[in-house]
Every structure is written in C-alpha cells, then in structure tokens.
Write a protein that binds this DNA or RNA. Sequence first.
DNA 1: CCTTTTTTTAATCAATTGATTAAACTTTTT
DNA 2: AAAAAGTTTAATCAATTGATTAAAAAAAGG
Lengths: 207, 207
Amino acid sequence: MKCISESTEERIKEAAKTVFLEKGFDGTTTRDIAKVAGINSALMNYYFRSKEKLFQSIFNDMCTLMFEGMLDLVNRPISLRDKISKLMDHQFQMMMQNPNLTIFIMNELHRNPERLYATVGMAKKIPESIFHQQIEDAIAQGIITPIDSHHIMTMIIANIQFLFVSKPMTMLAQGLDEAGFNAFATRHMEYVKDMICDYLFKPELSS
Amino acid sequence: MKCISESTEERIKEAAKTVFLEKGFDGTTTRDIAKVAGINSALMNYYFRSKEKLFQSIFNDMCTLMFEGMLDLVNRPISLRDKISKLMDHQFQMMMQNPNLTIFIMNELHRNPERLYATVGMAKKIPESIFHQQIEDAIAQGIITPIDSHHIMTMIIANIQFLFVSKPMTMLAQGLDEAGFNAFATRHMEYVKDMICDYLFKPELSS
DNA sequence: CCTTTTTTTAATCAATTGATTAAACTTTTT
DNA sequence: AAAAAGTTTAATCAATTGATTAAAAAAAGG
C-alpha cells in the first residue's frame, strides 16, 4: 500500500530514523540524514525546524513502537499465564525486527533524561495496567509467588531486551554471524520463558 | 593512598573517564575533558596523541573493569552453586559502583564494533573457562537442567546489567529517586538470584 | 649558573557543524 | 495564462570541532 514515491517529509523521517538509530543523536549530522534521504540539506530545516525537533519526532515514534504493543497487551482481558507468554513473544518479535531499538532509547535517555521526559510518558502507564491487578489477585489466591508486578515486568524485559542490547558483544564473544545470533536468541528465549514461568507459577502454589 | 596532586596524565585519564562515560565518544569534546581536568586543551594531544587514542585507553580500562573480576571468578575452584552466587554478587556490586558502565560499553560497541574488536578480547575468554566445564559436568551428573553455559551466563548478566542500563527509564516510570532505585535494584537482585538458581538446580534433579 | 630537556600555554588552523538566506523551480489557484 | 503559494536548491553564515604550532615556563642535568 506504500506509494512508490513517498512524500519528502516521510523520506526525511525514514532517513532520520535509520541514521539516528545507528549513530545516535550526537553521532548524526544533518548532512548524513539529507544524504540518506537524497534531498538538499536545507529541506530538513524546512520541514522540521531543527535537528533537535526532528530527533524528538523520531524518538517519540520509537517510544511508541516500543510501548504501544506492550501497553495494549497488559490491558487485554486474558489469563495471566497467557498474558505473560504473549508479552514475551511480542517483545521478542519486536526486537528481532528492530534489534537496536532498546540501545537507542536507553542511551538517549541516559544522555538526556530531562529533555526526553515528556516522550516516555507511556512507560508510566504500564504499571497502572490491568496486569498489575491480575498479579495482585493471583498472589492473593496463592497462584503465583508473591512479588510486585514491577519486578515481574523487569524480569521479562531484561531477559529479552538485553539479548539485543548486547548483540554486538555476543557476536564478538561467541564468534557468531547474523544467523548464528538469531539462532542463539531464539533458543535463549525458550529457556527464559521456562525460567520465568517456572519461577512465578510454582507447582506447589497452584493447587 | 592517592597523592593529593596526581600526575597530569592521570588527571586527564580521570577526566576523560568521567566525561566519556557520561556523554559517550561522539558527545564528548576534547575541550570538555580539558575543562574537567583543569588543564590546557593542547595537553590532551601532548600525552595522548588524539581523542581517539585517549578513548581507546579509557574503553580498554572499562572493559577490564567489567571483565577481570568475572574472569577471575569463573576460573576459581569453587562449587558451581557458590560460583553462580558469587558471580551475581560481584556483578551487582560492580554495577552499583559504576551504574553506567554497561550502557557505555554496549553503546560504543554498537556504534563501532570493528574499531573496538581488539579491546573486548577478554569477553572471549569467559566461555573457555572452568565454569563451562563445571556446567557440562553438572549436566552429565544430572545436577542441573541441561543448558549451554552461554545461556546461563547471558541470564546472569542480563538480569543484573539491564537493571542499570534501564536505570533512567525505571526511575522515570516508577518516579524513583537515587535511593529509591537502589532499594528497587537490591530487592530485584534477590528475586533474580532465586529465579536463576531455582531454574538451574531443580529439586527433582538433585537427587 | 647555564644548558638541555620536559611540560604547559595561548594562538591559530582547516574542517565540519547546524542553520539561514535568497533565488529558482513547481504546483495550485484564480 | 498570470499570480500566488508551496517546494527545492546552491551558497553561505557563525560557531564549534580536533589538532598543530611556536613560544613560554618549569624541571632536570651538568
């Protein structure tokens, strides 16, 4: 459905996304973006007022990409076990398609937490979700190990996303190519799913 | 034991470490470093030939800081259970003292994997350690769940280090200050230790 | 005390940076 | 088709960048 020749604004945003994700804000020049987009470098300032504004737009998009699917999932009316499984699958799929999404967001946030404060507002909504209540209910019913939902969320995110944050390191240390890494990541996911589910849904508690 | 007035070279390296860890290679100017070190900006080129050379030196130091303790531990002749516990404790302590060590290394490696290839050679030595053999033995004896040591190492590292990679995000999302984050991290560590040990050392296998 | 070497400084270089301008080109409107 | 509005371009700006220079200052050697 995508037009063959997209609008100039779209081309700039696409190029900016590519370059910002690869080189970060500091490592990116406006001329880089213009070159990748195949446009005159002044056009960047015509459509977006500055490099900063363009970046904010891209960063916002990336945060949405990161959180909207998760936010949808945590509020879906499905069983806890199913939800946790789907959360992990969704995140893994998202990271396979955007391997450097996490390192980009984490790094820019680290460099400038206050500047990007408004943009990551979405992240705040996850703790307030139905998921949180489901956890508390399950604990009250003795179905899962007593643990705050923040910690569960952190376990899920850490085990999946760190795989991709450390992708270059893993490839170097294990001498893997792209396909080798993907195989390793896919296998690791199975272990992690087992580990987290085993920990939460202990058999002696589920009776 | 530190001298009151250290050598100029030391002051430059200390300043460079501070600034590079906070702003990254691209975000750091040589004048930044000179300012923090309290020296003339030409002195940086006098002691280290270039910004690149100075960075390589710092990056190498940070990799050593990251891996040398772990490398020592994985080769120590202690029981597997004890080793895994000590590995986690050591990493947690290290990250508490250098919260942005991981995001720094991972980010610079992501931006320039080939340039820093030589520096991260240490990471390769971990898979070849006594730890690896211990895991295989334990699996053969049916003491732990059958799983490659790479995956175990990844689980340990991911669950601890991602905590600090995502520190700004966590603080924003949960509205924590420094002390609040440290409390959260300390609590999280206990859960993670339980989870990983429970997963590996399954009761039904230890008989 | 003078010479030699090492360390430090201020001044400056060429290159690159984000951004602006004014003019040229396109498209839309009338 | 003429006018107006919107889009794109080349040329250029001031500021900042990593790096070099030559001279000054300090330390070391005789």
